[in-house]
């Protein structure tokens, strides 16, 4: 069946894909694939470790985290950065809430650094960066709204997010932007839940900057009980 809807792009058929495996050992309690352009969510229990696999390489996975028992407590980029005194997310980074509490900890990371400065793309911000001709494109904010509403979350609950596998350097003069990624097919990040958390992910559909190599590929989500 055909459709006239101008949906987002998906990866070229000859793209190398590496589905990899969990970054930490344990019993696999969840193993799901997130298609290009799509959203995903799950509750990760305290002590469980979520591995996100960058299956096709340099595919941004925009991510928000909430206290599963009280979503008013949610991921806070500024608290995460202020507590560690550093602008980048790496192994050992404690992902903190708006109350300063640890939500998750990065326990494994196969790229130099992860981003939490660049935020999510949206139809609206796309008009600023690229022009009104891309207003019809899909965006991560759309995914967060679609996925979030399944859990009672709305626009008020969207805050500055994490971008797994996205590269946003801050240069000496403050210049900042999304540049070519440092990841590759099969690279992983692993985060351990420090409380029961609700994790929202948008598999970024952006086709106007290098956050997905202009070639949206799948993500694999694996949760293990160590």
């Amino acid at each position: 069946m055909t459709s006239s809807v101008p949906v987002g792009a998906t990866f070229a058929p000859d793209s190398p894909l590496d589905w990899s495996e969990p970054l930490v050992p344990g019993e696999v309690v969840l193993d799901e694939r997130v298609a290009p352009n799509a959203s995903w969510s799950a509750v990760v229990r305290k002590g469980h470790v979520l591995t996100i696999v960058d299956v096709g390489g340099n595919q941004s996975g925009d991510c928000l985290i909430y206290n599963a028992a009280d979503t008013e407590e949610r991921y806070s980029a500024p608290d995460t950065l202020a507590w560690q005194g550093n602008a980048y997310v790496r192994t050992g980074t404690v992902l903190r809430s708006n109350l300063g509490n640890p939500l998750m900890t990065v326990v494994g990371n196969e790229i130099d650094r992860q981003d939490t400065i660049g935020g999510a793309c949206s139809k609206e911000s796309n008009t600023l960066r690229y022009g009104h001709h891309v207003m019809f494109h899909h965006g991560c904010r759309e995914n967060f709204l679609s996925e979030g509403q399944k859990h009672g979350l709305g626009l008020r609950d969207l805050v500055s997010n994490l971008n797994w596998f996205m590269n946003v350097p801050v240069e000496e003069d403050g210049a900042l932007g999304i540049v070519d990624g440092m990841s590759a097919p099969g690279k992983r990040v692993a985060v351990r839940a420090e409380m029961d958390v609700l994790v929202l992910v948008s598999n970024c559909p952006q086709m106007n900057n290098p956050c997905n190599d202009f070639n949206p590929t799948p993500l694999r989500m694996l949760v293990v009980e160590p």
Binding site: A77, P78, I117, G118, G119, A120, S125, L128, R129, G154, L155, R156, S160, N161, V168, V170, D173, G174, A175, L176, G177, I178
Partner: peptide, 17 residues
């Protein structure tokens, strides 16, 4: 519900400071 978005405030102007 429309409110300050710090990420867009830095990203869109290509400037952190």
């Amino acid at each position: 519900v429309e409110r300050l978005n710090v990420a867009d405030t830095l990203k869109i102007p290509w400037q952190a400071y």
